[in-house]
């Protein structure tokens, strides 16, 4: 290895650390905004925005109980695996004008796989904790995961396929290419409807990815007492909370990169450093708006579904909507 590549390697590691810490802080901050907005929608005052940070620091000082009949290495390893895989998604997602750290070496398909790992870690942790509630929760998590995977993949395939038709030879699954050529500009009126349907699919898949209310069946606090997380306490629970917070940012950033990658600076004909600062700020505004519609609004507006209902919603209705979107976009191209 030459001197230059070593320096680049060290710089990349440093950048990865910065992104990891920044992602965690941003995630907890978004979680705080989410809780505040939910409280305001219920005409409550709500917790302060820094509440998730306080919860995290509190959980870190609590006792960490490992049940007697748990498998300790899986039980303790699952939260770390979940957090690491979630943070590693951040390296592949562009944050507004800031390009992704590893944008050249990973694409949307890798992200789809990485998104499945926290759920698998949760399932492994639930089964290994040796509690009936946790294993019921883990089974439900598995069923849910299998249900929402098809609509999610439909979105990815459709976007990549349409981009390939427009610009053959481009790396169509890379997020940089997808956000440089948003779907809205590639299609006609019929395809526009198709793209709207795909956006709707992504918005409904997100609550299941984040396990929040209409689809928080694996964690169902009222009947499963916390489900997969029931035996987790202290540091392990804190890590799972972090995972959830970072995943919220990941899903919102993914929605922004796929469907709303527009920048505000060209409107005011700005350029240089000021433009990138304004665009980054605009990206965070978009992020919070997307989180409001993907997470907060849905979770306050509706009650929890049963697991069979959720499966039907994803496997039949949402898959149908996603495939309809695909069909519209295909027809738009053929006509």
């Amino acid at each position: 290895m030459s001197g230059g590549s070593i320096i680049i390697f060290v710089l990349k590691i440093f950048a990865a650390l910065v992104i990891a810490i920044f992602g965690i802080v941003l995630g907890l901050f978004c979680k705080g905004i989410d809780r505040k907005l939910a409280a305001m929608m219920q005409s409550r005052v709500g917790p302060p925005i820094r509440q998730p940070f306080l919860d995290f620091f509190k959980l870190m000082i609590k006792e960490n109980i490992v049940p007697d009949n748990a498998v300790p290495w899986i039980f303790n390893g699952a939260p770390i695996l979940a957090l690491v895989s979630t943070i590693s998604i951040l390296f592949y997602i562009p944050f507004g004008p800031i390009p992704a750290l590893l944008g050249n070496s990973g694409d949307l398909i890798l992200i789809a796989y990485l998104l499945a790992i926290p759920a698998i870690a949760l399932v492994a942790g639930g089964f290994s904790s040796g509690s009936t509630y946790a294993s019921i929760g883990a089974q439900r998590e598995m069923v849910l995961m299998m249900s929402y995977e098809l609509p999610l993949v439909t979105i990815i395939i459709t976007l990549g396929w349409r981009l390939n038709l427009a610009y053959p030879g481009l790396k169509v699954f890379s997020l940089a290419a997808l956000s440089a050529n948003p779907i809205w500009g590639l299609v006609g009126p019929l395809g526009f409807i198709g793209a709207l349907l795909l956006l709707f699919t992504l918005v409904i898949v997100t609550p299941a990815e984040l396990s929040i209310v209409p689809f928080d069946i694996p964690e169902a606090e009222t009947e499963l007492a916390g489900g997969v997380l029931v035996e987790y306490s202290g540091r392990n629970l804190a890590l799972f909370q972090l995972t959830n917070a970072v995943k919220m940012v990941v899903m919102a950033a993914l929605t922004v990169a796929l469907f709303f990658p527009y920048n505000i600076a060209p409107l005011f004909s700005l350029s240089g450093a000021l433009a990138s600062v304004i665009d980054t700020l605009f990206f965070f505004v978009k992020l919070i708006v997307v989180i409001f519609f993907e997470a907060t609004f849905i979770r306050v507006a509706v009650a929890r579904l049963k697991i069979d209902q959720a499966s039907v919603v994803y496997l039949i209705f949402l898959s149908a909507i996603g495939l309809l979107g695909l069909l519209f976009i295909a027809m738009d191209y053929i006509i």
Binding site: A39, Y133, V230, Y232
Partner: peptide, 19 residues
């Protein structure tokens, strides 16, 4: 409930004694 709203003090009802 909105009238007393203890969540503003960070108090939250949890489902498991481990939490």
């Amino acid at each position: 409930t909105p009238r007393y709203d203890v969540e503003r003090f960070g108090i939250k009802l949890v489902g498991s004694p481990k939490h």
